[in-house]
Write a protein that binds this DNA or RNA. Structure first.
Lengths: 359, 359
DNA sequence: TTGTACGCGTTATCAC
DNA sequence: GTGATAACGCGTACAA
């Protein structure tokens, strides 16, 4: 039982003594009506406190002027990372000009698929999907355009990615060059639970970059003192991982993280445990969150253009919607930003390793 | 001309040889149908690649399961502030459990009112509205429940606020106690363009707190070397303001900002200009963004529970929607967090002021 | 299980 | 040139 049926176009039509169509025209196509009629209709609408029902309008028009941003984790987990805000800012900048809104679409009771089905949007932007097969299937079913960001590039699917492999390669190369051989890679918690050989998309590309860099120095991921540890993408996740790493027999002398947030957490933990940076421990991060410049020592990091990713992805989605473009693939460059968090490997830190550079 | 009319409930009805109603029941009320029928309907739905249209469903049910978060500025401006992400995280935590989504609602071509009209939501959360009268009018028209956060408390309107006045008082008191008399207050760019006597809501409460603290030391805002400067809520805004302040004849010895982001920008600028903290210049911030702990020296700040604001606001909106609660007002406490950014006023810094404490 | 009214605005078609 | 009529979009839910 509804207590207050909102004022509808029909109410105005009756009160003003015109048809529903006239009311609609008075707002959307005033030229078709006599000026006096338009005025009268608008006045009665004003008096009755009429507000068009956006749902009904969307229903008729067949579009919502809303884009869904699909994320694979609960929003409260993702929002802690400024990286997401930067990306979203890029999306918003492009989408806002076109008069579109942004619907945040986290998993519904753990299911990304269910969430897709419930979202009243004109298209989707997906960010960092890992197990993307079933998700894509549902996306295709909805017959809505979508752009995948940070995923595995697929034929006929619009994708925006960055050069993760190159960035990852550069990140590890930095510490290898500095003489480090006991290296911990701080990954991102994934459905694969550490089995990096099963990675896809962004994670896979990064691991490939790591491995290539390691191999050029004769090292192998997972062998000896080079290991990959998955952790929550948060400061706490970095701290926890760091604590575990430092409690081991041969703790790493360098830490390469897939996320600045994780790197900063790890740095905080290391510092609180009395280690000095970069003398005792070196760090490399990944991302370009603006706040990284607040930390001391400066964090050497792989910059990726998150804001541009958002802008481009949103622009591409608008193009797809307009039907003016085929689904394209774009890969943006990453860039090594050198600051103070990487130093030479401590003396004698490599006594357990025989690896030497090949090149 | 549509190229691909999506599969609808009617298509399935025809193919499966049943009525539309049966199809609907097969998904939402299977017990009313024979098992075999349900199975047959679901199978044909599967084969045809049916996806329910969320718009049509919302239309029927009269609810969208979406909340709109109304912000008074373009999203890309607001998203740079981690404060917003924290707030949104609180909203998401509460709203997600209830199966609701979040629609971000920035001004549409500069108009908050237009944006309200276009949003297909069940209710609104507003954040930091300044010129709120016309906005409220439009909100009321839509006859949707809404909760105002960081605004001027109004009768019959659900509001969540923090003790801005107390927080502001404490912020200024800290630097007054430390002997500072040349104090710059870094405000937030508002439609009032610096005329703080016209402030309402959060800004008004903060200025009131500032003034009360100043008065207890015989100082007056806007007189002598105590001034309020509005600036963009961003690091750049803080930097710009700081640069201007330091170029004046009698630069401040203490800076009290309404935002940590602004404070950090100002600190960065001051440091780059060769000033040492807190010896040459003291700073106090406002907010509780997590990343504030990354800056050195530690920023003394007024902590406000942004995450809780989001949680409570969303919870209140859910209650309003359920009709189980009247619109209530809640004020959360603020708290002074002392770190290293406030030091004693430099000697002879007060030679231009005669003010002394009264109490 | 079915038929059908309903929610609400848009727009093509038709009449004056 | 003005305005009305009615179909449409798509699922839901009540009466039969």
């Amino acid at each position: 039982m509804k207590t207050s049926r909102g004022v509808t176009i029909a109410d105005i039509a009756v009160t003003a003594g015109v048809s529903k169509a006239a009311v609609s025209y008075a707002f959307n196509n005033p030229d078709r009506l006599a000026e006096a009629t338009v005025r009268r209709i608008r006045e009665t609408a004003e008096q009755l406190g009429y507000t068009p029902n956006p749902l009904a309008r969307s229903m008729s028009l067949g579009r919502t002027r809303t884009f869904g941003v699909l994320v694979p984790q609960p929003l409260e987990d993702i929002l802690v990372n400024p990286y997401f805000a930067v990306f979203l800012g890029g999306v918003a900048a492009t989408v806002g000009e076109a008069g579109y809104s942004i619907l945040l679409v986290p998993p519904d009771k753990g299911s990304v698929e269910r969430a897709i089905g419930n979202a009243a949007v004109d298209g989707f932007l997906t960010l960092g999907l890992e197990g993307f097969r079933p998700t894509m299937h549902v996306l295709e079913r909805r017959r809505l355009p979508y752009v995948m960001v940070d995923s595995e590039p697929m034929e006929q699917v619009a994708c925006i990615n960055v050069d993760d492999e190159g960035g990852a390669y550069a990140a590890v190369e930095v510490v290898l060059r500095a003489g480090h051989r006991r290296i911990a890679l701080l990954g991102i918690r994934s459905p694969q639970r550490g089995r990096w050989k099963n990675y896809t998309g962004t994670l896979q590309r990064r691991v490939t970059g790591y491995r290539r860099a390691l191999e050029s120095y004769g090292l192998t991921l997972g062998v000896g003192s080079v290991r990959l540890v998955e952790c929550d993408v948060s400061e706490a996740g970095g701290r926890m991982a760091m604590r575990r790493l430092l409690s081991q027999r041969h703790p790493p002398t360098a830490v390469v993280a897939m996320s600045n947030l994780v790197a900063i957490g790890a740095i905080g933990e290391a510092q609180e445990l009395g280690l000095r940076l970069p003398d005792d421990l070196s760090f490399v991060g990944f991302d370009d969150i603006p706040q990284v410049r607040w930390v001391r020592p400066g964090l050497t990091t792989i910059r990726q253009p998150s804001h541009d990713k958002g802008r481009l992805a949103a622009g591409l989605l608008l193009d797809l919607l307009a039907g003016s473009t085929p689904p394209t693939h774009t890969t943006l460059a990453t860039e090594l930003v050198t600051r103070g968090s990487v130093g030479p490997a401590p003396d004698n830190s490599n006594r357990n390793d025989v690896a030497t550079p090949r090149d």
